[in-house]
Amino acid sequence: MTTPSIAPSRRADVQYLLRLGDTCLILAQRLGEWCGHAPILEEDIALTNMSLDLVGQARAVLTRAGQLNAEDTGTAFDEDQLAFLREERDYRNPTLVELPRGDFAFTVLRNAMVGTLLKLLWQRLQSSSDAELAAIAGKAVKEARYHQSHAGDWVVRLGDGTDESARRMRDAVAVLWPYAAELFEDDEVDGAAAQAGLGPRSSDLREAWEAEMGSMLTQAGLQVPAPRAFRSAGKQGVHSEHMGFLLAEMQYLQRAYPGGAW
Rank of each mutant, 00 (worst) to 15 (best):
209 W>M: 02
189 V>I: 15
185 E>P: 06
189 V>S: 07
200 P>H: 04
183 L>N: 01
198 L>F: 08
187 D>Q: 05
179 Y>Q: 06
174 A>N: 08
181 A>P: 04
194 A>E: 15
174 A>M: 05
212 E>W: 02
180 A>F: 05
188 E>V: 13
176 L>Y: 00
197 G>P: 12
195 Q>L: 14
174 A>V: 04
191 G>S: 13
184 F>Q: 01
191 G>V: 10
190 D>Y: 10
210 E>I: 05
183 L>M: 15
177 W>L: 03
201 R>W: 00
189 V>Q: 03
181 A>Q: 13
195 Q>T: 15
212 E>Y: 02
210 E>S: 12
210 E>V: 10
179 Y>N: 04
176 L>P: 00
196 A>Y: 04
178 P>M: 04
181 A>H: 07
205 L>P: 08
184 F>D: 00
202 S>W: 07
175 V>M: 08
195 Q>A: 15
197 G>V: 09
205 L>S: 09
184 F>W: 11
176 L>T: 00
175 V>Q: 11
191 G>R: 15
196 A>Q: 14
195 Q>D: 14
199 G>T: 01
186 D>Y: 01
176 L>K: 05
207 E>V: 13
205 L>C: 10
193 A>N: 08
181 A>V: 11
178 P>A: 07
202 S>L: 05
198 L>T: 11
180 A>R: 09
204 D>Y: 03
202 S>I: 03
174 A>F: 06
202 S>N: 14
177 W>A: 11
178 P>W: 02
208 A>F: 06
173 V>Q: 00
178 P>S: 04
189 V>H: 06
199 G>C: 03
188 E>C: 06
184 F>Y: 13
211 A>G: 05
187 D>P: 00
207 E>N: 10
190 D>T: 09
200 P>A: 05
205 L>M: 11
182 E>S: 09
188 E>H: 15
181 A>K: 12
210 E>A: 11
196 A>S: 15
209 W>D: 02
190 D>P: 13
202 S>Y: 07
193 A>E: 13
199 G>F: 01
178 P>K: 08
198 L>G: 05
179 Y>R: 03
194 A>Y: 12
178 P>Y: 02
